[in-house]
Nucleic acid binder design. Structure first.
Length: 531
RNA sequence: GCGCUCGUAGCUCAGCUGGAUAGAGCAUUGGUUUGCGGUACCAAAGGUCACAGGUUCGACUCCUGUCGGGCGCACCA
């Protein structure tokens, strides 16, 4: 809709036109302050210009009214335009809000270490990434969802050690001395029993078999992670294992040419040249590559696979890492601007106003699966999708367990369910409703229809700006418009019953598509409250 | 110390590439249809947009500085 108006105006005025939402719907559907920006070059007052422009729109079937108010130009879309568009959407629900973007994008997210189950911090990046994925795909982008598995280095050795420690205390009853760092949590018990079954008890006490144990265990941990993500309706296309990358290291190192050099027996990358604070070591004195080396090979591999755009979603604590990876990409001969790194910030949880307690059982972290169990996947997804991901977030679980309007996810679902209920109560058939005309709606109905038809541009805007929260915001306000309309206006038995039901179907369609893009299924009916 | 980032109502947060009177939800207070699900709706109250400058027709938005919070500053991943 917006696009249509915007191209129309661009053609008419011969320049880009800023389109915005009028302060008040009674002003119209769209507005532009264009008169202000050209006032200077025309040496006329904004008022005079907008008056002139407004009167030039006499004959036009998209707008029913164009007027000038205090220098702003306000547009009201015509009935024909809105009702045709709505009718098209209802008969082509699969196409509504879709576009024909074809860019190939590689989206890497979550990428949590395979050393334990996901915790609450991971789930934010996971939901954010997956929502972006769903939005992008809806718009037609060809997006591959990828998980980078850090299955090399110290952490994997630590995993093996941790399983042994757990087994020796709980299974063998030994009094072991715990080192400074090791992993803890309930999942280790499962790994111990699995390991004993597979390898026998001996493996718990044999330090030389730690590696073997760890390599087996990380796959088991990945199984847990994949399952937890599946519970959130998140699925990946590809997994890339860090351990598989190092074979390619020599070739990639050579590919960077002048970008790397030797000093003090180590190999460095000259990342300072590309904006990093200083150069970084990529190969240690003993010949072992650093973690950065793995990431360099990985990004080289990404670019060799040939996508048009790359998006990484990282935890905010990695922000210092961006410049060195980008530097490496440049040295490899690729455009680092094709690589976009989005950061997801910290999350703190409250429950009834008090900090949420981390359980010892979980290993002093808040497990994602515990939260999903407590409030459900829909609520968790909604929470993370509804906030900008680059600010620290604090939220209270209690709010999302309530079954009333203070719970946004409930509120939206209820709007959808209301429509479905009323449709089933009406005596009009689906066909009769679809054949009804949407013309002659009063101000409120017209406004609701317009709101419902905004979905496509919300989707596009949310994806393009990477501001995923625009979609839940929109759904909440659409639900609010619906509830308000419903309260004010009797539907069943009114002269306009079929017409209004058709309007409601458009609203339901937008709610349903919007929710599905958040990974949430729209409900046909709400369960009745107890008592 | 350096870098990144944030600072909007009592609380949690929106505010699009600068544009009309800075918006929601929660919490508080007061109300609502002899009717489709009251699991809803309406209203009141609540603000020096951290502070100080600058840019301009116009700044919550852009720039500079100050203060305050978070994160990062490994040859760990």
């Amino acid at each position: 809709m917006k696009q249509r108006v915007s191209t129309l105006l661009r053609e008419k005025f011969g320049r880009e036109v800023v389109l915005e939402k009028p302060k008040d719907r009674s002003f119209g559907h769209f507005a532009t302050p264009i008169a202000f920006s050209i006032a200077k070059e025309l040496k006329k007052s904004p008022m005079a210009i907008s008056e002139e422009l407004a009167s030039s729109f006499n004959d036009n079937d998209v707008f029913s009214r164009v007027e000038s108010v205090k220098g702003y130009l306000n547009f009201r879309l015509s009935e024909n335009f809105l009702s045709d568009y709505a009718a098209w959407a209802l008969t082509n629900p699969q196409e509504f809000g879709k576009q024909e973007k074809h860019e190939k994008i590689l989206l890497e997210f979550v990428s949590a270490n395979p050393t334990g189950p996901l915790h609450i911090g991971h789930s934010r990046g996971a939901v954010y990434g997956d929502t972006l994925l769903k939005l992008g795909r809806h718009l037609g982008y060809d997006i591959t969802a990828e998980y980078y598995v850090n299955d090399a280095g110290n952490q994997i050795d630590l995993l093996g050690l941790s399983i042994q420690l757990e087994g020796r205390t709980t299974l063998l009853g030994e009094a072991v001395e715990y080192p400074e760092s090791y992993y803890r949590g309930e999942y280790l018990a499962g790994l111990v029993s699995g390991a004993v079954e597979k390898f026998g008890k001996e493996i718990l006490s044999d330090e030389s078999r730690q590696k073997e144990l760890a390599l087996w265990a990380k796959d088991k941990v990945m199984d847990i992670i994949v399952k937890d993500l599946g519970d959130l309706n998140i699925f990946f296309n590809t997994f890339v294992y860090e351990s598989s990358l190092y074979d390619d290291w020599e070739r990639v190192l050579a590919k960077m040419g002048e970008g790397v050099y030797e000093k003090e027996g180590k190999i460095w990358i000259a990342s300072e040249m590309h904006g990093d604070e200083k150069d970084r070591v990529v190969v240690r004195e003993d010949g072992r590559p650093t973690y950065l080396a793995g990431d360099i090979v990985y990004h080289n591999q990404k670019f060799e696979r040939g996508y048009e755009h790359y998006i990484n979603i990282w935890g905010a604590d990695h922000h210092g890492y961006i410049s060195r990876v980008k530097a490496a990409v440049e040295f490899l001969g690729y455009e680092s601007k094709k690589l976009e790194v989005l950061l997801s910030q910290m999350v703190s949880l409250l429950k009834d106003g008090e900090p949420y307690k981390m359980s010892k059982r979980a290993g002093n972290v808040i497990l994602m699966s515990d939260i999903v169990e407590e409030i459900g996947s829909d609520a968790l997804r909604y929470i993370f999708a509804s906030k900008k991901c680059d600010t620290a977030l604090e939220f209270d679980l209690a709010e999302f367990k309530k079954q009333d309007s203070s719970n946004p996810i409930f509120y939206i679902q209820y709007a959808h369910a209301r429509i479905k209920t009323i449709l089933s109560k009406s005596n009009f058939s689906q066909e009769e409703i679809l054949n009804a005309s949407l013309k002659g709606l009063d101000e409120n109905a017209d406004s609701l229809l317009f709101d419902a038809l905004l979905l496509p541009e919300i989707i596009e805007d949310a994806f393009a700006s990477r501001q995923v929260q625009k979609l839940p915001d929109y759904l909440k306000s659409l639900a609010s418009s619906l509830h308000k309309f419903y309260y004010d206006c009797r539907i069943i038995g009114s002269d306009d019953e079929a017409k209004l039901l058709k309007l409601f179907m458009v609203v339901a369609l937008s709610l349903k598509i919007g929710l599905s893009l958040l990974g949430i299924e729209a409900k046909e009916q709400m369960s009745k409250a107890e008592d």
